[in-house]
Computed example of a mutant assay.
Amino acid sequence: MKELRTGVPASNLFRALRRQDSSVGEVELCKRLAEAFPAVSSKAFDAIRRWLEPDGGSDWLLDSVMQGYLEDAGYLEEPRSPHRAISHLLDHHVPSDESEHEDAIWLLRRIVQRMRDDFGHSIKESVELVNCYFDRFCNPSYAAQINYSVQDIEWVFREEESGMSARVQYYVTLGSKVDEMAFIAWFNALVKKQRSAANVAPG
């Protein structure tokens, strides 16, 4: 299990362990994970159980959330993906095909990159900001409180990385009140400013 510290995908490692010993199932995998990483969240065991189910989660989902739980427990030095956001969007979503989850995870990682590139946050800060955004906007209670739709995977695909990174910046970093018209005005001004800066000739 220590290979998980070096970036080996959980799905690859677990599958190799099961090939070596066909008796290795949910209980044994969870036992080995707990022995190697005693501080890891029990949600990691739930992720293993779901992955082993016949119609369970994809390899990409297991790999991303497992990495996130290890990060939370302090076993990985640098965060690499917004695993809470991934869980909020994908845990209860039935994909139309396997690639849909992979595309969503890739897009969330691109949102993290845009937070760094467009707004100057570190990768670690960007991961937490993206996680915080989806902690709020995927929460039905919060959505009802602000009279807003719960954001789902279709919403993220529609907004794409530029729109979602701007939403994270506006609503989480700047702490702005939820107001769609005010956000659109701010976003349009941001895009205009970015285009003007791109058109300025060097020197």
Rank of each mutant, 00 (worst) to 15 (best):
Y69E: 11
V40G: 01
S41A: 07
E35M: 08
K2F: 12
E98H: 10
W51A: 04
H93E: 01
G120T: 00
L90F: 04
A185M: 12
D59M: 06
A189Y: 00
Q20I: 08
E78P: 02
A198C: 04
V40K: 00
E35F: 00
G74W: 14
A16L: 15
S11I: 04
C138L: 01
V172E: 00
D91Q: 09
S22E: 12
K193N: 11
S141T: 09
S196A: 15
L190A: 10
V150R: 08
W60M: 14
M115I: 00
C30A: 15
E77D: 13
P38H: 02
D103T: 05
E35H: 03
E53Q: 15
L61V: 13
Q145V: 05
R195P: 02
Y133I: 05
K177P: 01
E71R: 10
S196H: 13
S81L: 14
V130Y: 03
Y170Q: 02
E26W: 07
S149E: 11
Y69L: 07
L190T: 04
R80V: 12
F134A: 06
N147P: 02
E159A: 14
D55G: 06
M164T: 14
W155H: 13
R49L: 09
H101C: 06
I86L: 01
L108D: 06
G68W: 10
Q194R: 15
Y69A: 04
G7F: 05
D63F: 13
G203I: 04
A44M: 01
I105L: 10
G56F: 03
D91G: 01
E102Y: 11
Y148H: 14
D59I: 06
V172H: 02
P140E: 03
S64G: 09
A182N: 02
Y142G: 09
A85E: 09
K43L: 12
W60A: 15
K2V: 14
V94F: 02
A44D: 03
G163H: 06
L108V: 06
S176F: 00
F137R: 03
V8Q: 13
E78T: 14
S96H: 13
